[in-house]
Amino acid sequence: MAKLKDLAAIEDRLVAGHGMCIGCGIPLIFKVILRATEDPLIIANATGCLEVCTTIFPRTSWNVTWVHSAFENAASTISGIEVMYKALKKKGRIPKDKRFKFLGVGGDGGTYDIGLQALSGAVERGHDIVYVCYDNNVYANTGGQRSSATPIGASATTSPAGTQSPGKIQRRKDLTKVLVAHNIPYVAQASPHRWQDLYNKAKKAFEVEGPAFLNVLCLCPTEWKYDESLGIRLAHMAVDTCVWPLYEVENGKYKINYKPKEKKPVLEWIKTQGRFRHLFKEKNAWVLEEFQKQVDQDWEELNKLESL
């Protein structure tokens, strides 16, 4: 079991001076994930907060090989790189026994919506890559438009709450299950506040032969509208209310990594954030009910899948 002190002794692969928001949740995730492998790392980054904030030309916050091409094709880029390294090894340009790790990174916009086709193709082709999605439920980088990861009832600039609208009315997409349906060796969902769990999952994902996918909850004080110092408290709440269950699927076998002793009502999660504030109006009560129903359904289904 890794200790935080040991992790802290490892050199940073993502360094200070990046332009991410005050209290942003992305660096917390990558601080842990990038330490989960000792091998040289090549990263392909989809357009998104992480890409924009870490590489403001002529500066870069990356200490590893890093490439950005476009919004939709981080997965294609990283799979191409993986094949190129294979070819270089075949040609003898790189020693055959030298190990490299390939990491694709995208936000929920670049993964759930725009990059889904590329990601689906890359994992279907069976490249030895890891793809990490940091899911903050919204297109935060472009000013807070709704994405398919935005939960029901959340107000975003393209699904604003108003006199007639209760915010987004559609159910959020369950991308983790979409990836499970690809029958790849490893799929997991994690949260930054349980760093040990996140670290283990990242380690497994890097070690597994073939494609692996991690979906990590990402805190976003700017778009979720909460006091930025309370970020980690919110992550606790998301997991305790089962809005964001922590589980992994290894070769088709489900395992829930954390079951809250007492499943809290979704209200506890909703009342912490400004984006849900309008839900407390009487006319929007049905959205709250619907939200709770969806979370209960998903949690029940997950428990059933685990017991299979």
């Binding site: 940073d12 360094v15 200070a16 001076g17 990046h18 030309f57 002529p58 870069t60």
Partner: peptide
Amino acid sequence: GTINLDAGNSVKNLTGTW
């Protein structure tokens, strides 16, 4: 291709001013 060879040079950007 505007390849940046100066890895990790964002440390010059002092975010403490925020």
